[in-house]
Nucleic acid binder design. Structure first.
Length: 268
DNA sequence: TCAGACCCTCACAG
DNA sequence: ACTGTGAGGGTCT
């Protein structure tokens, strides 16, 4: 996710319209949550964090080659969040051909300009929830471009309008198969295979969805094709066969590993 | 199947 | 410090 702010051992973000600070304690063994208002139930947060997931069972389904093993060992505890579909979709439409720092800036600009303020505890910085599809649908392309999103503005606007009018129903995707939901997402302007797979995996929790971006492609080529060049179709066929029922999880481990941990890649 | 275009920003040379 | 340059969690035509 792109809108969370980190300071020391804590992260501040918005989940289901609520300000929340997540704090690491006891040597990362425990996460505690602080909210701005008293909560009578926490399912909105435990669902977001996927607390009920047995990570060990997921990891057990991964292939056992040395590189996958190294990725698992160096990313202990890494798990997927369950994001809001609209926010996830919009953020990834904005992600195309952008560096992560820039995506964060765009999302922050959108939140500040179009988002609704969220109640925060005294002394905390003001925070805004990600703007609804309706709110963005009412904006102009020029206004969106002022949030530094460039050529992505017409895509985001057109998609926001389809969702705001009900022409496209994000909720309906929940009852569909991964294949059908993917085909639906691909109809949206600015949504190709990579972004569709991101939304399937990060928002709807389809565990086989496998986003292939430049980094994952690089990882697959390096670890499974000896660095050779591989055509996109072949890459796609390979990963769907190799990584099993939780391929999306495996993707996250490989992604995080090659971006932050794989010394052989990072150092020249 | 494949370039090129698309906006803009930031890291990194020089 | 300062400017020039290139490429970046892709998609569309």
């Amino acid at each position: 996710m792109f809108a969370w702010e980190n300071s020391g051992e804590s992260w501040i973000g918005v989940v289901s319209g609520r300000w929340v600070k997540l704090i690491l304690r006891s040597g990362n063994a425990v996460i505690t949550a602080q909210t701005a208002t008293p909560q009578t139930e926490w399912s909105w947060l435990t669902n977001f964090l996927q607390c009920g997931l047995n990570l060990g069972e997921v990891l057990a389904t991964f292939p056992t080659d040395p590189d996958m093993r190294a990725a698992i060992d160096s990313c202990r505890g890494l798990r997927l969040l369950r994001q809001d579909p609209w926010e996830c979709l919009a953020a990834f439409i904005l992600s195309s051909s952008k560096q992560i720092v820039q995506i964060r800036q765009i999302v922050a600009a959108l939140n500040t300009r179009f988002g609704s303020p969220v109640i925060v505890p005294a002394g905390e910085r003001p925070v805004f929830a990600f703007p609804s599809a309706q709110r963005l649908a009412d904006a102009t392309e020029a206004e969106l471009r002022e949030c530094k999103m460039g050529f992505r503005a017409p895509y985001l606007l057109a998609t926001a309008r389809q969702i705001a009018t009900g022409e496209f129903d994000l909720a309906r995707l929940r009852q569909m198969s991964a294949t059908d939901a993917r085909a639906e997402l691909l109809k949206l302007p600015g949504v190709g295979e990579k972004i569709a797979d991101c939304v399937l995996l990060f928002a709807y929790g389809f565990p086989t969805a496998f986003p292939i971006d430049v980094w994952v492609a690089k990882a697959i080529r390096k670890y499974y094709f000896r660095g050779r060049r591989v055509r996109p179709v072949r890459l796609r066929n390979y990963v769907t066969k190799r990584f099993g029922p939780n391929a999306g999880y495996a993707q996250q481990y490989l992604f995080h590993y090659i971006r932050t941990k794989d010394v052989k890649t990072l150092s020249p």
